[in-house]
Design a protein around this nucleic acid. Structure first.
Lengths: 277, 277
DNA sequence: TCAAAAGTGTTTACGGTACACCCATGC
DNA sequence: GCATGGGTGTACCGTAAACACTTTTGA
């Protein structure tokens, strides 16, 4: 048996949205379109030194990793683009290569708390948003011991992200322009990006990348940065305004070259600074 | 810190579907509406005997469990309804109570293979569909040792499900009419049900609960069984016919009381019998 | 020939897209 | 006053919902 089976890929192009969303169980609405699981990456890793009998003897290690997204201005255009922090590996395997922040599951933390701790340790920041991505458990993800990684993805505010720590071994990269990473982390980032884009298209997510108050144009820029294309400003603002959890303030953003745009506030799930202690 | 933080719940009622699906990375279309993660259940379990220092000393155990769905005729109406098999626990904790089939992660299996093995062991069946559901890792899911469960969900054909093994310690239950189960398994099943309903609304999933050939009315019955409401037959058939991966055969289902309906075939992802060996 | 399900057609309503247009501000 | 982004109005089009209607079979 191998990881790469076709089960669970769930293709299907017809949307069948006609099956209208009804009362949903878990206080949420039914989506109208599929969110397929990624096909688990066929990891092209060197099989490494450990032989099979050794491998069979050990229990698989359990690790938590986190894909952290934040908005930063592009060096070229200055427009906001998606970035994520990576850490340089300081031991084998993959020594010297860049990898997702992570580590073994600490005993006192829930999975989510462990992920939040990753985030604090590497960036010094607290997540606005944190959600489980997927559990990766292929047999040969790591050349030596078998590792099962439960991966989370997170978003941090752009205002804070600008002040995030960087060092010799922690550096921010443009998402989408990554070269190869350690382990199967490149595939994991790609999957996280795909999931981010998905969530994006049905709202309420972009705000976690922004500050407390923002202009509608800034929200649009987030969408354009993540989706990688332009969006009609007129229609976009209409859609936002009729969307829930958006509230106009009386303030306007001053200092621009032209008419000062109104500032808005997100009133949905609270901007908590960390998982409530 | 506690598991039950608000992060990652991602409410948001506005659909914002206006952000049109563009070219999607992983060969799939972007969905238009949100698929939120379940809030992890606040498990009301007895904390059990082990004290904290003991708990800290042990590594968390890693387990695989599987929620298996199949269609079976209701005893009352005879119409197809959703069922799932559970196993009776034969040791502490929760001895005598019903639980999801599962067990520790066997060394030689990938996560998905381990889930498929669960399925074969308890039902004797092979899954038509198998997908990762979520990794549950709350601190007190099990009273003694800490357990992290990676849960899969599966669907098996109704025709085969009718012949599935049952025994003293393996029994099928109607999904949605479950009483309390061992551990946090009730919440897990509810989440799986919610996810099934989601996938349902954007097609291609219902077929995995049916046989190779089926009438459009049977597909409609699956939708009605899963969604728990009636669906307009006229509009439903139109939507199905313009959906991809559905092919009319030249055959008709004989033996009914009235006009024999045409049989159709699903031409999407193959009906493989097991993860390809 | 009648009941019931299979299958088709038609109307209406809603929401997204495109794009023309007005408004307010800094220079 | 004019360029530019903020913000509004509107016409068009595709699709889903509702439901009337025809067709085909068994009893």
């Amino acid at each position: 048996m191998q990881q790469q089976s076709r089960l669970g890929s769930s293709v299907g192009s017809g949307t069948l949205a006609g099956i209208a969303p009804a009362a949903a169980p878990l206080e949420v609405q039914l989506p109208e379109v599929q969110l397929p699981e990624v096909r688990l990456p066929a990891v092209p890793l060197p099989v490494g030194a450990a032989n099979v009998s050794e491998r069979l003897a050990q229990a698989p290690a359990l690790a938590i990793s986190t894909v952290i997204f934040a908005l930063r201005p592009s060096e070229s255009s200055g427009r906001p683009t998606l970035w994520l922090p990576l850490v340089r590996r300081i031991r084998e395997p993959f020594i010297g290569q860049w990898a997702l922040p992570g580590g073994p599951l600490t005993q006192a933390d829930s999975l989510q708390d462990a992920a939040a701790r990753n985030l604090a340790d590497t960036t010094g920041l607290a997540p606005n948003y944190l959600e489980q991505l997927y559990a990766f458990g292929g047999l040969h993800r790591s050349p030596s011991q078998r590792v099962v990684s439960i991966v989370y993805w997170a978003m941090v505010q752009s205002t804070e992200a600008a002040m995030a720590r960087e060092s010799e071994n922690v550096k921010w990269f443009r998402a989408g322009e990554l070269t190869e990473l350690a382990f199967d982390h490149k595939q994991i980032v790609d999957y996280a990006l795909w999931r981010l884009r998905n969530k994006m298209t049905y709202g309420s997510i972009a705000y976690y990348l922004l500050g407390e108050k923002f202009t509608l144009a800034q929200v649009r820029e987030v969408y354009e940065a993540v989706l990688g294309r332009t969006v009609d400003p007129a229609n976009f603002r209409r859609q936002l305004k009729q969307a829930a959890h958006i509230e106009a303030t009386d303030e306007y953003l001053q200092g621009g070259k032209h008419r000062p745009p109104r500032l808005y506030r997100y009133t949905g799930d609270t901007f908590s600074d960390s998982p409530s202690p």
